[in-house]
Nucleic acid binder design. Structure first.
Lengths: 174, 174
DNA sequence: AGGTGTCAAACAATCGTTCGTTTGAAGAGG
DNA sequence: CCTCTTCAAACGAACGATTGTTTGACACCT
């Protein structure tokens, strides 16, 4: 808390003129990170095909992680240190977010765009691959967000058994 | 430290007759978790096909995570709190472990078993999907390790563009 | 006797938080 | 223009608890 205070040019105790407790601040942090993910997902138009929709979900997800590495890290980990009631609020939002992915994959399977044995496991698999990005991606490196998004979109599509659209994956055949 | 002491029926300070410091204990924990992963990987026979080899790697990886959730959690996170020198020892072993996956994927691409644009990114993608398992898998639930391994193996194979072996993934087509 | 392991106590540092006081700017009344 | 009051914001010291670790005395085993 004293570190936080110093960051806004305050004495440790002075923070408590503005906040209730350390936990309240943590919740605010985690919850706003949840906002970032959910806002991206909810801003996607509803009339897209599952493939297009999922591509946007992937882009948004990676964008949030890459552009706000710290927020993503807090979102993925620190909610465990909230009290049970606040934890429930966060996990509810996380489940809602996962729902966006699951539903679009379900729709894709229904329309024959995807071919997947177990939608729940496939959703988990895909989201896992995306989430872990915060462990290794460092902005300013050689890999741009756009390049990462394209590669990961292709990998996800393969994972979900997309058949057509060989345009991008037929490059090197040596 | 007092909690650790109580777990072995000792007083807090008595621990220091056996250990150097808290950091030493943490390193031991993280390093032994690294052992678990590496031992599994190194026990795989060298004469397998890339597909078989990768399947064993996936099985071993998930087995370590599922059977020692706590160890895996510590391995994935707590190494960051070691001093730089000890951190290097851990990341070196992690890189070696990732190398097992990368090399087998490389070999698979070379032999035409896999079809992948960027081996590095594909390796990262696959390992990410596997690693995240510790976030949600809970032993004793409806999903057995064996079932998880099979599903994830199929998903990884699709991700890596495996063409043949439709035996397991042609079950439900309604 | 001589280690070895354990205890209880204490250590300095740090934690989140509280509290009484001071500060400084804004508004009211003359 | 000056005073007086008000009030939120900040200070700085202190709180009780907890942190990792050290110390010296005591007991046990060879």
């Amino acid at each position: 808390m004293r570190d936080l205070a110093r960051a806004v040019n305050l004495q440790g105790g002075s923070l408590y003129a503005h906040i209730e407790s350390k936990e309240e601040v943590l919740f605010e942090l985690v919850n706003r990170a949840a906002d970032e993910f959910l806002n991206h997902a909810e801003a996607i138009p509803a009339n897209l095909s599952p493939k297009e929709h999922l591509e946007r979900l992937i882009q948004g997800h990676l964008e949030v992680i890459v552009r706000s590495l710290d927020h993503a890290t807090v979102f993925f980990h620190e909610w465990k240190f909230l009290n049970p009631e606040l934890q429930r609020k966060i996990t509810a939002r996380r489940d809602a977010y996962e729902g966006h992915f699951r539903k679009v994959i379900e729709a894709g399977v229904r329309l024959g765009e995807f071919e997947v044995e177990d939608v729940r496991l496939a959703t988990l698999f895909v989201l896992s691959a995306l989430n872990w990005t915060y462990h290794w991606y460092r902005p300013g490196g050689p890999l741009t967000l756009e390049s990462l998004s394209r590669h990961y979109r292709d990998l996800v599509f393969k994972t979900l058994g997309v058949r057509s659209n060989r345009s991008t994956s037929r490059a090197n055949g040596a």
